[in-house]
Design a protein around this nucleic acid. Structure first.
Lengths: 202, 202
DNA sequence: CGAGTGATTGACTTAGATCAATGACCGTGG
DNA sequence: CCACGGTCATTGATCTAAGTCAATCACTCG
């Protein structure tokens, strides 16, 4: 889910490559956690399926990202990873990563920093779920974009899962926000209109 | 938020103690993160206030727990910690903790494990927010109790914040579940009724 | 003994879930 | 090369669970 700078070159050699076709699962919820994965090429979607059958999007991993970092200390995976496109991944055995972390304090600290970042990110997402109005959730999501432009990592439907909205509700909300000039959409990207323009439209 | 077994005895000495009265803030959102805190006695509530002014309960820390572990890699706190009762806390300077982690691989690994656990916990909470029906969220929350009995760490109102419900909705839901025999409540604890009994009531 | 807060219940309103239908697009296999 | 099945994007209509406003009672803390 984030840059694997913390993975020292030294254990790269022990990794096993695996290729996936679009739609193929890398691992699914409750599978044995055998190690962590680095995405070499392609894109992987992380999800959980709730008891109701609803999809919770946990995130996306692109080339260079690692997934299942937190599974290092767990025997099973708690989410499902599915390749969105034809992808190549590298698996690092749990044992060798743990050994490396024990040996290399710099790597251990970088790994801890990565996890700390994820904790903060998850808290932000939890905070977003606390907003009751669909539009506020979208605004909160867009607020993370420093330059006012967000490139959607997945489909709009995926975004709906991430925001905890039905896809219909999200389509409508985006539509309204566009009508009112608050945002502009174009090919999988959303641009926040400058404040002045938006205020003018209201 | 969790047991500080990872805090090596060696840096305990450098800690600074501070005492708080009930309702007093240990730190608030956007404060400079100076270190991590261990709760010696008392109880602390971690919250975030969303843009709407709504309270998101991030968790509670009791004697022995540490808070703000993830702030070790951040310059500011992203949440607010308020003492729920008269409390005593110990602060460990950021620099000395980081130095210790760099020196002591065992501590670093334990710290990483703690963060990994938090990541999984947060994902579970996010998953809970994906449930749309109040009752399902309550069930999901209670499901984490292995023995079917949950001792509420805070007030029912706090639980409402944790579950992302208005307190009224939660009171009503708990009331209905109790009426139907699905749960039993007593002095801040909730007991899941045995399945047979519940089914009989329906 | 008031002030403040939690717990609880009632009445009303609404945002969003749900069900449903349509058009666009895409990869695939005959 | 094209028909077909699948998914995404979009919009409409309907319904309901939960939010909001409001009032009351119990309790605790100076």
């Amino acid at each position: 889910m984030d840059k694997p700078e913390w993975l020292p070159q030294s254990i790269r050699g022990s990794a096993v490559e695996r290729r996936l076709s679009a739609g193929q699962a890398l691992f699914t919820s409750c599978d044995q956690a055998r190690g962590i994965y680095e995405i070499v090429t392609g894109k992987v979607r992380l999800t959980r399926i709730d008891p109701e059958g609803r999809v919770l999007v946990l995130g996306f991993a692109c080339a260079g990202d690692t997934v299942a970092e937190a599974s290092l200390f767990s025997t099973i995976h708690c989410c499902t990873a599915v390749a969105m496109t034809k992808s190549v991944v590298r698996m690092y055995q749990k044992a060798s990563v743990l050994a490396e972390l024990a040996r290399n304090p710099r790597a251990a600290q970088a790994y801890a920093a990565l996890l700390a970042y994820q904790v903060m990110d998850l808290r932000t997402r939890l905070e977003r779920r606390n907003l009751h109005c669909a539009r506020d959730r979208v605004r909160h999501y867009l607020a993370s974009a420093s330059d006012g432009t967000v490139v959607l990592p997945g489909t709009v439907k995926d975004l709906a899962g991430e925001l905890g909205l039905s896809h219909e509700a999200l389509y409508r909300t985006l539509g309204h926000m566009e009508d009112e000039g608050e945002i502009a959409r174009c090919e999988g990207t959303i641009r926040l209109a400058c404040r002045a323009h938006h205020l003018a439209a209201v």
